[in-house]
Amino acid sequence: MNIIVLMKRVPDLVEDLEVDDTGKALDEDCVSLKLNEFDDHALEEALLLKEAGASSVTAIALDGEEVDKMLFTALAKGADRALKICHVGAPPGRPGAGEVGDYRGLAEIFAGVVREQPHDLILTGVQAADERDGQLGPMVAALLDAPCVEVVTSVEGSGGAVTVHKEFSGGLMAEYEVDLPAVLGIQAARATPRYAPVSKVRQVQNEATIETVSGSAGGGSGVSVVEMTPPETGEGAQMLESVDELVEILESKGVI
């Protein structure tokens, strides 16, 4: 079973985010990008499948700042190959193309590359915090005409099909059998994503290579950004200055 993991970076939400002068995008100066945490779970699930006998794990990402580090880290954790998509070209003039959260365009780029690679199972994060125009997994699946299940917390099996657990609410899950090739949106891996020590990443950086492939530009979703604003806070929270004030409130609510 050849497994592909689609990886992307998203703004680190711990940072203060600000809107830029266009009013339609984040101010890049304030943004630091990091691996989408759900993609990290997707990679972990892929590595667990490999430990259970799958033949290969290939991590794929679109070129960009710090992407080499992200891919070397994937290799250090146990991925067999890392592919970086370069030379994508300017997106066509459809509304929404190249704008914030243009995941439709990204899905087309990924689908084009995946088609050229051996693939039985394609894993990616269940969602990303900037997926404005749809979830990457199901979009790639639709473009490849492959089945897809989102919100997956466990993948097991080999051969022509896998057994997956999909989570609903309240901890209720459903089990499905899915024929390969298939795309799965991973919510959480069966184990906490492993950690690659810096020394290991450095070693891999010296020994392994990241392959580059060219991609064809995505089409845009026809969904253009009108404006981006911090959410209206309404009343907002009444800010407290001391624990004494907090105690008073708990008293007034009759809980202490």
């Binding site: 404005r132 125009d133 979830q135 199901p138 639709a142 989102e150 919100v151």
Partner: peptide, 23 residues
């Protein structure tokens, strides 16, 4: 935008060429 809806919306949008806004 629930576990079930996530399986339906993006797929429908791509297959039918419809614009889609998530979240």
């Amino acid at each position: 935008y629930t576990s079930m809806g996530m399986d339906l919306a993006s797929t429908l949008a791509v297959k039918k060429g419809m614009a889609h806004a998530a979240f």
